[in-house]
Simulated scan of single mutants.
Amino acid sequence: MPSAALKSALQARLDLLQDLWQRRDADAIVRELYTENTEITGAGSDALYSGAEQLRELIVALVGDSRGASIRIDRLSALGDSAAYTWVTWRVLPLQGEAFAMKSLFVWALGDSGWRIVADMYAEGEIPA
C-alpha cells in the first residue's frame, strides 16, 4: 500500500501540472514534469513522443485545444522507494463544447529533480472507481 507521503508528493506534481496547463505553459510542463527520456503515446496516435522537442510539440497542441484540465489520482502503486505508477482521470475543458474525461497511466521516477513522469499512456474515458 502506498504511503500518504507518496500520494501527497505525486498529487503536488499533478497540481503543478494542472496550474501550468491552465496557463498553457508547455515549456514549463516539459521542464517540470518530464525527463529527457520521457515517452508519451495515446490511443489513436501512431507516434511515440520522446525528447524535449517532441514532448513540447505534443503539449503545445494539447494545451492549445483546451481551457484547462483537472487531474485526479484513481490508483497509486509504489514500485520501491524511487518509482511508482498512477492511474489518473483527466477532466478536460475544451475550447468549445462540454468537458470530457481522459485517462492516463503515468509511470513516475524519483530523481535529483524530484518526482517526474517517465512514461504516459492516455486514452478516452475514465478509470472506474
Rank of each mutant, 00 (worst) to 15 (best):
T89E: 09
N37H: 09
Q96F: 00
R91D: 07
A43T: 12
A69N: 14
D15V: 13
W21E: 07
L76G: 05
L95Q: 04
A101K: 07
D25W: 10
L58Y: 12
S8E: 12
D27L: 11
K103Q: 14
T35E: 00
G68L: 06
D19I: 03
S45Y: 13
A84D: 01
S8C: 03
R75A: 15
T41P: 00
L6E: 02
E39W: 01
M121V: 15
G125L: 09
E32C: 09
W90N: 13
R31N: 09
A129V: 06
Y49R: 07
D15E: 13
Y49H: 12
E39L: 04
L14R: 02
Q18L: 03
I117W: 10
Q18D: 10
E36H: 01
Q96I: 01
T35G: 01
A26N: 08
E124P: 00
A119V: 00
L10M: 07
V92M: 05
G114Q: 02
V88H: 02
A28C: 03
A78T: 05
T86S: 03
V118A: 09
L95N: 09
A12K: 13
Q22W: 05
S104P: 05
Y85Q: 11
D74F: 02
E39F: 02
A61V: 05
E57L: 06
L55R: 13
S82Q: 15
A99E: 11
M121F: 08
L48P: 12
R56G: 03
W87T: 06
L62A: 08
Y49Q: 12
A123E: 02
P128R: 09
V118F: 05
L33Q: 07
I127N: 13
E36R: 12
D46T: 07
D120F: 04
K7W: 00
M1A: 15
W87H: 13
R72G: 11
L33E: 08
V60W: 14
L6R: 08
Y122N: 10
S45V: 08
R13E: 08
V88K: 05
A5S: 14
I127M: 06
S82C: 08
R24M: 05
D25A: 10
A5L: 08
T89L: 05
G68M: 09
W115F: 08
Q54Y: 10
L79M: 13
A109F: 04
N37L: 06
R116M: 01
A43G: 02
G111M: 02
D74E: 11
M102Q: 11
T86W: 01
R72E: 13
V63I: 13
G111R: 07
P128G: 09
L14C: 03
Q11R: 11
A26I: 04
G111T: 04
G97L: 03
P2W: 01
F106W: 13
R116T: 05
S113E: 14
A99K: 12
F106Q: 09
